[in-house]
């Protein structure tokens, strides 16, 4: 790269600031249009959430309406059970994401470091579970849950969330463990650690980025899950999670647009901040899991 080569014309793939101004403007234009398409629907939610109650239905396209008010936020926070939906979701999501990561972290270690009988069958099985349509498993789980009396409680839901995220997590974590040399654990074992201690004290601390990604994935999957919660919780008013609650606001006779949008903004902004903050790790984790397998 250091050698100054003689080709005068640089191709599309490497060129940077030496491009012709026209080409640079064109590229920026395309990117700006993409950004507008990406962000406009999100800003519209904000716009609707700020409208006063009598102007919810309007053909106004302004992002901050001229008579902006926080009325919808007040209603959803203090007059609707929105906070208890969020609380329910948080309680379920944090506990299941934690358990899911622990189960996957240990299983991935076994897959990464031992050639035990049934290993390749297990890995193919993990891949195959990704093909099962969600509504396919819903049928037997729902009927079994009725028979076990688990409908209308969190029991079935919590167990299901813990387990369903395992295959994907194991793939990501195994891919990451594979990149860590076994020598490190062997060194620890020479120093008198047991295999389990070597895993806990050497490998796990080194895998923090991958563990964080997996936790985030599990968290997002459970946090945003709608279908299973709808099937398992039925019409238990006090147990609703936020996706069910928000859908209910929209699904009634007359859509509570303002409240729906205000609730959406409240749920969405923390998730988006978390996501953007961790997106760098997310990307490396994904490509690692994808390429290395």
């Amino acid at each position: 790269m250091s050698a100054k080569h003689t080709t005068p014309k640089k191709s599309f793939f490497r060129s940077g600031r030496e491009d012709s101004p026209f080409k640079r403007i064109l590229i920026h234009l395309v990117l700006i249009i993409s950004c507008v398409i990406a962000i406009f629907p999100i800003l519209r939610i904000l716009a609707v959430s700020l409208r006063p109650g009598n102007r919810l239905m309007s053909t106004d396209l302004a992002i901050i309406p001229p008579d902006a008010t926080l009325e919808s936020y007040r209603i959803i926070l203090f007059e609707k059970p929105f906070l208890s939906w969020v609380w329910n979701s948080l309680a379920i999501t944090i506990s299941t994401a934690l358990i899911g990561v622990i189960l996957a972290a240990t299983a991935a270690y076994a897959f990464s470091r031992w050639k035990f009988p049934g290993r390749s069958v297990g890995l193919v099985f993990l891949l195959a579970t990704q093909m099962i349509p969600a509504s396919m498993l819903m049928i037997p789980i729902y009927i079994l849950a009725i028979k076990l009396g688990m409908v209308g409680t969190y029991r079935g839901l919590v167990i299901a969330y813990c387990v369903t995220s395992i295959p994907f997590s194991v793939w990501i974590l195994k891919g990451y463990y594979d990149t860590i040399p076994v020598d490190l654990e062997e060194a620890a074992r020479i120093d008198g650690c047991s295999q389990l201690q070597a895993f806990l004290r050497v490998l796990l601390p080194l895998s923090t980025p991958a563990l964080a990604i997996t936790f985030l994935f599990n968290f997002m999957a459970a946090w945003n899950e709608y279908l299973l919660a709808r099937v398992m919780l039925g019409s238990q008013e006090s147990l609703l999670t936020w996706p069910l609650g928000l859908q209910r606001l929209q699904g009634q006779f007359q859509t509570q647009w303002g409240q729906f949008s205000a609730g959406s903004i409240l749920v969405m902004v923390p998730v988006m901040v978390l996501f953007l903050y961790s997106s760098k790790y997310l990307i490396s984790g994904l490509t690692l899991g994808g390429v290395k397998g």
Binding site: S34, C35, V48, L246, M272, S279
Partner: peptide, 26 residues
């Protein structure tokens, strides 16, 4: 960062909001 944003929006919210934008009049 901006182009990634749609991925960060919870799907249920994104799709319900899009449905609203497909309303005939508004």
């Amino acid at each position: 960062a901006i182009i990634i944003l749609p991925w960060a929006v919870p799907q249920v919210i994104a799709v319900l909001a899009w449905r609203g934008e497909f309303n005939f009049a508004y």
